[in-house]
């Protein structure tokens, strides 16, 4: 029986797993980290979620995000307004930090997920799979949409005392997007994709 060797990514424990193993959760016997999820339908769910995330991202950036009224004064903000404003005020560093963590990195992640799971769903392993998986692995801590959502709530509470706050359509789209992205992170399992890359390489070497 052929075996493959796995190494726990938390504690480096070596494990021998039969090659035929197909489904179910595998936990590291030493530290309890989940090593393999191998859930059925991961590709389908990821494809659906990344399409949803892409649509929600467009909605978030198109409609007004928050409006604020104080006696006689009104100001509207779109999702990107705060970034544009920060750049206008020459607060470059915060501007770049907010732009990267709430727009650029999430957009890259959604784009890569779409371009990975789209072709894989249709049975094609795209040539950029290795690149895409590497970028996805490195970019994870830099996407902070969920943190931004809490930031929005905190600022809403702070503003409630000053005037009237009206949440826009974009805020609702954004909230749903945060949950969709969180769901993607739970379902996403790169290991089967890495194994497909391995299989393809082996086939190429044999041919």
């Amino acid at each position: 029986m052929t075996e493959k060797i796995l190494c726990c990514h938390e504690c480096d424990e070596l494990l021998r797993v039969p090659q035929t193993r197909k489904e179910g959760r595998l936990k590291c016997p030493r530290c309890g980290t989940t090593l393999l999820r191998q859930k059925k339908g991961m590709v389908e769910i990821m494809y659906a979620l990344s399409i949803a995330a892409a649509i929600l991202f467009l909605l978030t950036n198109y409609f007004p995000f928050l409006s604020f009224h104080v006696v006689g004064n009104t100001s509207h903000a779109n999702f990107m307004t705060s970034i544009v404003y920060l750049f206008g005020e020459k607060d470059w560093l915060i501007g770049i930090a907010v732009l990267m963590t709430t727009v650029v990195v999430p957009l890259i992640r959604i784009g890569l997920m779409l371009s990975l799971f789209g072709p894989i769903y249709h049975g094609i392993i795209p040539p950029y799979t290795v690149f895409a998986l590497k970028v996805l692995s490195h970019s994870l801590p830099w996407a902070m949409l969920d943190v931004f959502l809490v930031g929005v709530f905190v600022s809403m509470v702070k503003l409630v005392k000053m005037g009237t706050i009206i949440p826009g359509l974009s805020l609702w789209a954004f909230m749903v997007m945060v949950f969709v992205m969180a769901a993607m992170q739970v379902v996403f399992d790169p290991q089967p994709l890495w194994e497909k890359v391995d299989e393809r390489r082996r086939e190429r070497e044999l041919a």
Partner: peptide, 16 residues
Amino acid sequence: MIDVFVVAILAALIHL
């Protein structure tokens, strides 16, 4: 990062 985001949102919204 929450506080930085709060500051960014407040600064963008409140310049009346």
